[in-house]
Nucleic acid binder design. Structure first.
Lengths: 170, 170
DNA sequence: CAGTTTATGTCAGCCTTGTTGACATTCCAA
DNA sequence: TTGGAATGTCAACAAGGCTGACATAAACTG
């Protein structure tokens, strides 16, 4: 199973970064880093009796105002029952507004209320602060590599969604 | 809140990679990539009625044979009760062996059995295959940056554990 | 227009994996 | 030797995934 790598080829193109040991370390790095990545939002949301699921909903509604429930389902990869529970509490608590679709009245267009936007900003800024610090410490070239590897690691369908945001963004 | 960045400074040291927009994209990349990262192990473990928690336990016991429960707790960041449940099933199913500590009989030293090592190898190879493909697609320089940013993103305590593995490894 | 498909919401119940609390065992130090 | 700290286990609960079943309304199709 273990791939045949390790002998630095001719032309200085060493493949040592593809050894199982290097890849195991990358896996551990990903696992530990992801915990840091979610730690600050988790801590903040605890004060509001919300969890990671609420954070994800707030994030993507903020990212794509007016998005539909179905659209969100594709992004989040959960069942509608699961998403509905989270969305229900956010709507009942006045953080998300759900408007009947203009052209297609079956759809619901989702928006953050002022309060929702405020919470999203608070949580998001905490998370961005950590990522910003990591970016600054690692430098622009490292960040480019970081983004490149992450993109290559995504499931193709999610990569498409990601790239759509990438275009749409700035 | 948003940091004062964006004006490319003198000397070609542009800080555009620190804009909120770039950081938001990094956050999304991290989220989508982590789902890819866990997808293959999850799929395999489903067949054995195990979950992600079992995977983590197998991984770290394999990584540090003879480790104690307490040690594992520090690595995994869950309560001992939560870990115990997972460990219990793995021991009962004959994947992990728990030996009473030699010097301190309160401790338990954990090892993978042959069956445990086999499952660990199967799951691990699936995960490594995806990471390997991503590494290969991105290239060695990108991988170095990837690792650097991840390390900077970890909580300090976990970074220490991570670096200990890094030394001990290969 | 009748029938089907699509988008959404909801109820009920289950599973995994977190949590706290209570408790037994073992070790160590006063 | 006795009390406290460390280690591990059992019980019960909560969050947030899941499936299945079903209702409604709107859109689409023949």
């Amino acid at each position: 199973m273990a791939e045949h790598v390790g002998s630095g080829g001719a032309g200085g193109e060493s493949l040592l970064f593809l050894t199982d040991e290097q890849i195991r370390k990358g896996i551990e790095a990903m696992y530990f880093a992801y915990r840091g990545f979610t730690a600050d939002p988790d801590r903040i949301l605890e004060n509001y009796a919300y969890g990671r699921a609420h954070h994800r909903a707030l994030h993507f509604v903020n990212r794509s105002p007016g998005t539909t429930v179905n659209n969100l389902l594709a992004l989040l990869g959960v069942t509608k029952q699961s998403l509905n529970r989270v969305l229900r509490t956010l709507i009942d608590d006045g953080l998300v507004e759900s408007r009947v679709g203009a052209s297609d009245k079956r759809e619901r267009n989702l928006f953050l209320t002022e309060a929702g936007a405020a919470l999203e900003a608070e949580v998001s800024e905490a998370q961005r602060a950590r990522v910003r610090a990591a970016y600054r410490a690692a430098g622009p070239d490292a960040v480019a590599g970081f983004r490149q590897v992450l993109e290559a690691m995504m499931e193709p369908e999610l990569r498409t969604h990601y790239q759509a945001f990438k275009e749409g963004g700035a």
